[in-house]
Every structure is written in C-alpha cells, then in structure tokens.
Design a protein around this nucleic acid. Sequence first.
DNA 1: CGCCTGTTTATAAACAGTCAG
DNA 2: CACTGACTGTTTATAAACAGG
Lengths: 480, 480
Amino acid sequence: MRRSPTRPLILKRRKLPFHQNATDSQPGESGSKEPSKPAATQSFSDGIRIMDHPSMSDTQVVVIPETAEVQSVIGALTAKDNECGAQGPNKLILLSGSGSDNKWDYGPDSQSAAEGAATRSTEGHKVKAETTSSFTVNKDVTCNPLDDSLTDLHWLGKMSTCDLEPNSTKQLSSKENQNPLQTFQNKFILLSGSASVNKWDYGFIPETAEVQSVIGALTAKDNECGAQGPNKLILLSGSGSGNKWDYGPDSQSAAEGAATRSTEGHKVKAETTHSFPVNKDVTCNPLDDSLGRMSTCDLEPNSTKQLSSKENQNPLQTFQAHNTHTSADAPQQPISERPPYSYMAMIQFAINSRKNRRMTLKEIYMWIEDNFSYYRDVAKPGWKNSIRHNLSLHDLFIRETSPDGKMSFWTIRHEANRYLTLDHVYKHQKRTLPDARKTPTSSAPCHAFCLSAIHFLLPAEWEQFTSSKESPHSTEGDTK
Amino acid sequence: MRRSPTRPLILKRRKLPFHQNATDSQPGESGSKEPSKPAATQSFSDGIRIMDHPSMSDTQVVVIPETAEVQSVIGALTAKDNECGAQGPNKLILLSGSGSDNKWDYGPDSQSAAEGAATRSTEGHKVKAETTSSFTVNKDVTCNPLDDSLTDLHWLGKMSTCDLEPNSTKQLSSKENQNPLQTFQNKFILLSGSASVNKWDYGFIPETAEVQSVIGALTAKDNECGAQGPNKLILLSGSGSGNKWDYGPDSQSAAEGAATRSTEGHKVKAETTHSFPVNKDVTCNPLDDSLGRMSTCDLEPNSTKQLSSKENQNPLQTFQAHNTHTSADAPQQPISERPPYSYMAMIQFAINSRKNRRMTLKEIYMWIEDNFSYYRDVAKPGWKNSIRHNLSLHDLFIRETSPDGKMSFWTIRHEANRYLTLDHVYKHQKRTLPDARKTPTSSAPCHAFCLSAIHFLLPAEWEQFTSSKESPHSTEGDTK
DNA sequence: CGCCTGTTTATAAACAGTCAG
DNA sequence: CACTGACTGTTTATAAACAGG
Ligand SMILES: [Mg+2]
Ligand SMILES: [Mg+2]
C-alpha cells in the first residue's frame, strides 16, 4: 500500500497524447475508392489480406503477417475504410500471426452473441470488439548508456528506480506520484491508440472503436517513432466487450445461453494478437545519477507493533529513515532493486525456465531469489505470501500432484501459457539498448518489445518472436 | 490487515474436536452384512436411496431427501459400508435435493478424469471426491436471551462482537486471536467432519475420505447436538480434487484435454448439496454485557500521513483510542457493528433483493448502507473500493450494459446464483434464536442453517430451503 | 507446537475511461 | 471548449486468517 514501488513499472498504464493529430487527419471520405469488391479476399501490400469472416455477416478479417510494416497496415485499413466509406457499419477483425498457419480459429462459437451491438452506430464501420489491437512499443531510452552492466540483470534495478519517490516521507495522495514517472516510462512507452480507441497498454479496442481511430493511432505511432534501432509494435487482442483479460482461450464455452439479456458477459480469447515492425523515437531525460537509490521507504523503522508471524520481518536493511534529504546521494547498494515484473510474470518466468514446465513452490521461491536478488536481500518475507497468493488466485496456475501423491507441482495452464522466460525479456532488452540516440527521421522499421504484452501473446507467436536461439536460463527439469 | 474484525465471523473456519470417539467406534467390520445386492436401487429409511452411477463404474449415488434425518443417513451409510465391507474400493456420491427432481446432472463430462485415484487405497470404500459433504450446524447459543431487539438486524452486531479483541492495542500475532472466538462461534458451529474427512466449514471431503469417517462425523454431530430447537445440517459438495471453490457449474468443460499428466486441475461443481435435520446442543458462555464494544481499533488516531484520496477518511468516529482499559465498559453505541458477511455475500444479498437481479454500483452501495449501518456510520470509505474490487475480481459478478449503453448493471452469473437474500439468513436466524436453553437429550430433530454454505446451495435447494414465504426485503426492481 | 503449503478475504493503491460541472 | 474532479472498473500488492500436513 504505502510501501515499495507498488506496481512494477512495466505494468504502469498510461496514455499517449497523440490522439487528435492523427485521428482527425483522415476523416474517412477523401481518397480513391473502388467501392465494390465483395470477393472473398483482398490482398494488400506486405501480404496483408482482408477476407470475409466465415460465419459472421458484415464482418471481415484482416490477416496481418508478422513481417508487415505499420505503413502497410495503415494502408490496408485506409483502403478498407475508403471502400466502405459511409455505407454504415462494418466490422473488422485484426488477425495476427503468419496468416494461414495461425490455427487459432476464432470460429463461430465464442462471438455469436456480440452482433447486435454495431447497429446503433452509423458514423463509420467498426473494428470488432474481439480484436482489441493495442499496440505497444518499447522505446529505446536515450539515457546515458548503461555502460557495461548490460550482461546481467542489473539493468532491471536501474530501470525501475523511477517510482521510488526520492522526495521524502511519502505524501503520495494518489494523484501526486504520476508525473514523476512519465519520463522514465518512456522506457516502456505504451501506445494505446487514440482517445476513443483503446483502454491502455495491454491493448483493448472497445467495440465502438472506429477504423479511422486505429489508422490514426498507427499513423501517429509510425510518425512518432524514428529509426532508432529495432522496435516492434504488438497488436494485441484481448477481452472482448468486457474489460478483463482472461488467460487462455477457453473458460467461456459454456456462457452462450446467458446472452439473451445483453451482449455483455462473454469474454473473447486473445486469438488475434499481432506484432510487426514500426519506427520509434524517444528522448527520455537521462537516468542521471540518482540510480543507486533503494526502494526502502517502506521499512517503518520502529513501529509500536512488531507482529511476529515469521513472514513479517525484514531481512537486513536498516538504512531506511535517513531520507528527507536524499534523492541524489546515491549510496551505491548492490543494485538489488525491485524488478519491474509482477509476481504473476515472475512465476511464469520461473516455471517456464524448466523444460517440463513445472516447479514446486520452494523451487519457485529459489528461482526468484536466484534471479532477482531483491527478493533475497531486500524484500520483506511477505513476498512469499504474495507468491502463494498469486498461485492460488490466478487460474493460470494449476497445482498438480505427483503420481505418488507426495509432492505437488505448479504448472501453467497449457492453453494460456505464452512460454515467457526471463531470457526473452533479457534478449530483447539487450537488443534494444546498445545503439543509437535520437533523430526522429521516421524511415527504417524498428522492433520493440513490450513486456506488458507477455500474458497475451500466443505460443505460436512467441516462438516466432523469440526464435533466435536457445535460452541459457532454461535450467534442467530436475525434480528436486 | 491489522484493522477491523478482519474476516467476517461467519467465515471463520475451524475444526470440531470430536473426531476419534465417533470414527473409531465403527471400525467397519462389525455388524450384519448382506454382501451382494448389485441391483439398481436400494432404499433406506427416510427415503434415502442408493443407486448405481449411470456412467461411472464402481460408483454409487446416495440420494438424500431434504426431510431425511441424520440418523437415517448414518444408517444408510453404515449399511452400505457393511455391505461393501472389505471388498476394496467403492465410491459413493452423496446427492442432495429432493431426489429425482434435482436436475443438476453430474453427467459423465466433468469427472471423467478422476477415476484412477481410488485405486491406490484398499482400506475401505471411498466417498467420491465430488461429494464433499461438509455438514454445518448452526448452534442455538444459550446466551441470555437477546431480549427484544430480535426483530431487526441488531443481532448481527451483537453476534459478531467476539473477535473485536477487547484487549487493547492489538498484539494479535496471527496466533493469539483464535481462541477467544471459540465460544462465540458456537453460534455458527461449523461441523467439518472427522480429522480425515473434511477440510473446513464450507465442506470438503477429500477424495480419500472413508465412509466410516463420514458416518463418524454424522454420528458425533447427532450425539453432540441436543434437542434444542430447530437445527439443520447441511451437506455440501464442492470443489473436487482441487481445494478451490468455483461458483457455478461451468468453466471447466474445456479442461479435459489437459488431464493426461495428472488427475488434478479439474473442478467439480457443487451439484451435490444437501441439508437435513439434525439434533443440536450448545452451551455458549452467555454474551454477558460487553456487547456494546465497537470494532474501532483500526482508526489509527493521528498518524503521520493523512492520505487524501477521498476514500480514505473515516466518517465520524473519534472514540477509538481510549482503550487499554476497556473490555467491559460498554458505551452502548448504536450497535452498528460490522456484519458477519463477506463483501461477496453482501453483494449477493443486494443484487438478489431485486426482482430482476441486477443493480448498479451505486445501488449496491445504498443497499448495503441501508441494511448494515456499519457501512454508513463506522466503516472507512475504503469499503466502497472493496466492493468494486469484489465485483471485478469474482467471475460470479458480471457487468451488463443497458440497451442504450448508458448504464451498467451488475448481475450474478445465473448458473452460479444461489439466490441468497438477507431475508433467508434473517428468517433462519429468527427461527433459531427464540426458544429453549439446553438439556442435551439427543432426541428431537432440529434445523440449523449455516451461513457459510450460502455460496454452495443450488437454486432448487434454496427454494426448498427457503420456501416459507415472501421476503419483505425484496425491494422493487426500479431501475433508478 | 511450529513451519510449510494452499485458499480465501480484506484493504490500499495505481491507473484508465467516462461524464458532469 | 478545455479542465477538473467524481465515479466506475480492472489489476496488482500486501497482510492476514485459517486449514492440513
Ligand atoms: Mg491457481
Ligand atoms: Mg466480475
């Protein structure tokens, strides 16, 4: 609550302020139109294809190969928008993957209840709710180069130091501590689309989003991003008309019958995710010198109560109450600062580091302590309580019992597993950091990777996206 | 955390200390046996029937009518146990309801992966995991009669005052505050069965439970309970091999394919719940005079921070820090003490009080404030945050949007709704409280009602169980 | 009895979107 | 019309109660 860098940086949500300029520049009745082409498939540049939905009327599917550039997507959507013009509503589903070999069929089962919604709007054709294409970009921060410590995980600590509120004893009144993050978060710029398009980073295009808005968002993002090294734009689909994400394509097949009273309440699988190159460009104020600052403002030196339940004492850590004049005196600690990952993400890192994708609780503890010294050295023992809480709470994590019934392992629901490991993150991080500065020239495509997307990439996409080579972190599946 | 009567009393879990005496008294190879009777249906007293499971081999279903007495259940199970004797494993599913008209079919879909488990045990026949029959009894506390204030909800406050830790400034080190509850909780005695039978109040008989244990638990409970007024024993089924409850029979139909590696991970619906009369008897130390004590130990009078986010101030309430010598000086407040219901339960009360079973957030707030003055007068504004949190968190609650898209309502997932209203609770409470004292003579059946069971009763059973008359609390479904 | 594992509830907070003033 | 703040909704973090082994 009042302690620690509450939420991992990477999961902070925010909006980009670019909405208007792009969204309004293409009012939708300007360019060339070849109005009637009701054939099965239209092809666009970069292999983008638009075809009729196999079962839903008034709906088409935009298949976007992984190699497509943002401009091509913009082009295809623009053309489609022009074609449809003002002929009333039409729905588009953005599909990702390598096109035809993406076998996650969004068949006629899970969205049969969502039709009636598009009738009420006449101001354009809609992007179907199921394809909440949030596009997330990992900006290459132009902080003074993080020198040599890139080969291990120290950058994690350094990167996540921006929300430690160097100003002294917390008066964070739930409003004051948002701006200070702004600049640092460029490290993980989260493009959410135009004002009406999206919700936030994970990606969510509501049912009412217009194609123009999507086009505008993509255009703005493309312009905004320069040519600074590789970047990758990830279009994510997620929860449909609801605003919640569900991890994995199931758990809704039994919900049809209840849809009579409303079109709400059915969740849509993350079947339409997409990632493709885009330009980028950031100028984050350099990380200056206050990096060594620890996140120790939560140790409440000597309170009146000292509850004893064993998971409530801090490990070492007695250097907490000398603040009120800190903020730059940087007592370079062994950098073990809180990593920017949620517990859920870390548990996935841990479990997926094993070949057999299962781990005991104790092993999860150990993996996390081994890979993030923060939890070994700094964190209060309550973090283990939180790990257990997360394991229980999220249906993503399933407990299995060994055949002899003696041991129990934690696994990840197979349909929901994106096989994320720390190496993926790390690899992309290394790939992103080393090179150039700025010069927003908007030309060469670049690739970014947004950690916020980790829960929502499909296995196939993960393979494509992370097919570089083997992961050195992947330890052996030794069952203790 | 360190504040408030943390968990509602009613949800406290504890075990009864009666295991051995009953469980050991029937070692399972004593009585008369008519070993072979493989016919389709066996009938026992009180209409209890035992029949073969339609699809699962080596499995039988015990159908228990609502009117059955515990003794009859014990008799049937004992006979069954004797019949099967030492012939190795056999599985019993306890089914509740009025027998045939309980249409919640536990068909061959959801438990197909649970067979292999019973093979490893040879020490008797098993009670199938799906029928976690927890039996819960609401003891009629023999506190000095609660005089005249029974006609409204004041008893709620009075009953729930036992965990307010009258001893001064909290040194509850996660161990100290369990015993003081013991006596008060007799108000909601939660019989969980023998040591090996159960898990806790909600009811959970693990797959490894033996029939003898169930018999023992029932026998002990029957003996323990005297003839004190109406009581009702509720057999609940719940989560199968997992230990989690899921609200409503669905959301697992897609989990079959993953069962190859283990038999875990599938949840079993609460299809087999049962309630039937049982004897009872309690002698709770009278509620004496310290009832007026408020639960205000959490107000932290004047801390260093006063975070401003609007939901963080207390309403009135300045009478908190005069403790350290309280515990009996009872400054009779307007009794608005924290009701013993979880947020989830209260939200269900609220929503189900409407005919159309839907409410806006604001209406939920209002309903709760109207029915529990604690939340209007005492609770910190953060309770509204908690309400929202619960609405979002639990899949039980579904948000719907009105046809015009202007308003959004919260509803309860139909398959999961047990249609609980505060009247049900209240009615049963009134029925339980008024009459006699003790005299544990163990004769006449009585009826108890366990509030812990509220999430796990099926609609049909709720109707039977609560079919007395209309509920005065059921306000009109005026959509604001 | 104390530790470890697991489930559930409570509470605070961050932050997004919407809407009314 | 832009800004602001209240309200609504989703998600994460943390502490705790309590059960069983
Ligand atoms: Mg889980
Ligand atoms: Mg919900």
